[in-house]
C-alpha cells in the first residue's frame, strides 16, 4: 500500500493492546475491547497508528498481537502493521514502562485503551494510572472519534440505553472504548503473519503488591433475578423496555464519610447482602 497522505495535523494515535483470553477455552486471542480500540483507530482517516503492548514476550503474547496485526489489511502504511512490544517480566508493573514509551518515543496525541482486560489484573485501572502519571485527561465510554481539529478532539461517548454524548477534549487525551463501539473487523492471516513485532527494552519496576496475591478463576457475579409482575402484554413490554436499574436510590452530596458509610450499610442490610 502507498503511504496515505498526511493531513495538516499529523495525528498520532497509540492503541494499547493486551493479551486476550477466550472465555470458553482460555486460548490467547486479541482482546475484544482492545480490538474495538484498534478498530476505532483504523476508522480515523489519516492517522498514524502506534500499537503498544507491555508485558512478557511469550507465545501467548505473539498469538494475541498477531491477532491485532491481522486487522491491518489495507492499512499497511498507517503503522497498524507493527506492534511496539515493551518487553517486561511477568511480575513487573507495566505502568512506568508504558508511560516512558508513550511520552518519550511514541509521543501520541491520543491514546486508546479498552475498559478492561481479559486476564491478568484486568481491573481497568491501567488507563487511570497512565492518566495520572502522564497528567493527561481520561475519557471513558467512547464509541467514536468524530474528528480532530486544531488540537481538539470531538468524541462520542456512550451513555446507558443507547444515548450518546458529544464531547470536545483538548489533546493529548487518553480514551477508553466502550463495549458498544464498532465491532472489530476480521483478523486476516496474511497481514497478521507479515506484521512486525518491534521489541523495545524498558527498565522493569517490580510490582511488590502482586507478590501477595493469589490468582484464581473469577466467580460469576450474582445477577438480580427479574421478577415479572406484569399481567398484560403492554406491561410486559414496558418492563422490558424500562431501565434495568431500579427507580429507587438517593443521591447524597456533601455528607461525611461516616454518614455515607452508614447509608451504604443500611442499603446492604435492606437488600439482604449483609445479615
Amino acid at each position: 500500500m502507498p503511504h496515505e497522505p498526511i493531513t495538516t495535523l499529523p495525528l498520532t494515535v497509540a492503541v494499547l493492546l493486551s493479551v486476550g483470553r477466550h472465555p470458553v477455552t482460555g486460548r490467547a486471542r486479541r482482546a475484544d475491547q482492545d480490538a474495538r480500540g484498534l478498530e476505532l483507530a483504523l476508522s480515523m482517516a489519516a492517522a498514524r497508528i502506534e500499537l503498544v503492548h507491555a508485558g512478557p514476550f511469550d507465545d501467548a503474547c505473539e498469538v494475541s498481537m498477531r491477532g491485532y496485526l491481522g486487522m491491518s489489511a489495507g492499512h499497511a502504511g498507517s503503522g497498524a502493521d507493527s506492534v511496539t512490544l515493551v518487553d517486561q517480566p511477568s511480575q513487573a508493573d507495566v505502568v512506568p514502562a508504558l508511560c516512558r514509551t508513550l511520552s518519550e518515543s511514541l509521543a501520541p496525541q491520543l491514546v486508546i485503551a479498552g475498559e478492561r482486560a481479559e486476564q491478568g489484573e484486568g481491573s481497568g485501572m491501567l488507563p487511570y494510572q497512565l492518566s495520572e502519571s502522564l497528567g493527561w485527561p481520561l475519557v471513558g465510554g467512547i464509541v467514536a472519534v468524530e474528528g480532530v481539529e486544531e488540537g481538539v478532539a470531538t468524541l462520542l461517548q456512550a451513555l446507558p440505553r443507547g444515548q450518546r454524548r458529544r464531547l470536545s477534549v483538548r489533546l493529548p487525551v487518553i480514551v477508553m472504548v466502550n463495549a458498544t463501539a464498532m465491532a472489530p473487523r476480521q483478523s486476516a492471516f496474511g497481514p497478521a503473519r507479515r506484521g512486525t513485532l518491534a521489541v523495545v527494552e524498558q527498565p522493569a519496576v517490580h510490582d511488590a503488591a502482586q507478590d501477595e496475591w493469589r490468582v484464581q478463576p473469577a466467580r460469576k457475579r450474582p445477577k438480580r433475578l427479574k421478577i415479572v409482575k406484569a399481567t398484560s402484554a403492554r406491561e410486559r413490554f414496558k418492563a422490558a423496555a424500562a431501565k434495568s436499574d431500579g427507580g429507587g436510590g438517593q443521591i447524597m452530596k456533601d455528607v461525611s464519610p461516616d454518614e455515607a458509610a452508614a447509608a451504604i450499610h443500611k442499603l446492604l442490610k435492606e437488600e439482604d447482602v449483609l445479615r
Binding site: 477466550h22 470458553v24 477455552t25 486460548r27 486471542r29 491481522g70 486487522m71 489489511a73 489495507g74 473487523r185 476480521q186 483478523s187 486476516a188 492471516f189 496474511g190 497481514p191
Partner: peptide
Amino acid sequence: LTLERGDTPNKGAEVLDNLIAT
C-alpha cells in the same frame, strides 16, 4: 479475500474465529 483481506461475509468471520479458538 479471507487470508489477505479479512473479508469473509456475514457469519464467516465469527465461524472462523470459533474454529481457531474452540
